[in-house]
Simulated scan of single mutants.
Amino acid sequence: MMTTINLTADTFQDTVTGEGITLVDWWAGWCGPCMQFAPVYEAASERHPDITFAKIDTEAEQELSAAVQITSIPTLMAFRDGVLLYAQPGALPAEALDQIIGQVRDLDMEQVRREIDAQEAQAQAPEVPEASQN
């Protein structure tokens, strides 16, 4: 049973901004570590049916890959309720993937949103000009 979905530039935004947890595996057919990670990712998708497991072929989706600054593959991204919580390159062993899933699942999203709001408010604060040196 195919439990992962393939994303494209057209479906990426809608998928990762949805409710719940979405994992995205950025890969390519010529990438050895990607091929090693694929069965690990597929197996995890079968163990966690409540999570959306998506794959993006970086060869087919070069513009999208460039837009999100994918520089190394495989890269795994984890989103929850539209918030990017994890993005790291490298093929993960099954235990490490399960740890990431557990951490994303256990997060207090209210707290995460408060932190994001605080960071955004700080980023939008007017710059205080430095005293002139005359």
Rank of each mutant, 00 (worst) to 15 (best):
M1G: 15
T4V: 09
T4Y: 01
T4W: 00
T4Q: 01
I5C: 09
N6V: 04
A9K: 11
A9R: 07
D10A: 12
T11I: 04
F12D: 06
Q13W: 06
Q13S: 14
D14E: 14
D14V: 01
D14M: 07
D14H: 10
T15L: 08
V16D: 02
V16S: 02
T17F: 12
T17S: 15
T17E: 14
G18W: 09
E19M: 11
E19L: 13
E19C: 05
G20W: 05
I21W: 03
T22F: 04
L23S: 05
V24S: 04
D25E: 11
W26A: 05
W27P: 00
W27N: 00
A28G: 12
A28V: 00
G29I: 04
G29C: 08
G29L: 05
G29Q: 11
C31I: 05
C31H: 05
Q36E: 14
F37D: 00
P39A: 11
P39G: 07
Y41I: 08
A43N: 09
A44H: 04
A44I: 04
S45E: 01
S45I: 04
R47N: 15
R47T: 12
P49W: 07
P49N: 05
P49T: 03
P49L: 03
D50H: 10
I51Q: 06
A54V: 00
K55C: 09
D57W: 01
D57I: 00
T58W: 01
E59H: 11
A60W: 12
E61C: 08
E63V: 01
E63C: 00
E63S: 05
A67H: 09
V68E: 06
V68M: 14
Q69G: 08
I70F: 01
I70Q: 03
S72P: 02
M77W: 07
F79K: 02
F79L: 06
R80N: 10
R80L: 08
G82Y: 15
V83H: 11
L84H: 09
L84Q: 13
L84C: 10
A87P: 08
A87H: 02
A87Y: 01
Q88N: 15
Q88F: 06
Q88A: 14
P89Q: 12
P89K: 13
P89Y: 12
G90K: 11
G90M: 10
G90W: 06
A91F: 00
A94P: 08
I100R: 07
I100G: 04
I101C: 06
G102E: 14
G102Q: 12
Q103Y: 04
Q103S: 07
Q103M: 09
Q103P: 05
V104D: 05
V104W: 02
V104N: 06
V104A: 13
V104E: 03
R105H: 09
D108Y: 07
M109W: 12
E110S: 15
E110A: 14
Q111I: 02
Q111M: 13
V112R: 01
V112H: 02
V112I: 12
R114P: 00
R114Y: 03
E115P: 03
I116R: 09
D117A: 15
A118M: 10
Q119W: 15
Q119Y: 15
Q119L: 15
E120C: 10
Q122D: 11
A123W: 10
A123R: 14
Q124H: 13
Q124C: 01
V128Q: 15
P129S: 13
P129W: 12
A131C: 04
A131R: 11
S132Q: 14
Q133M: 14
N134H: 12
N134W: 13
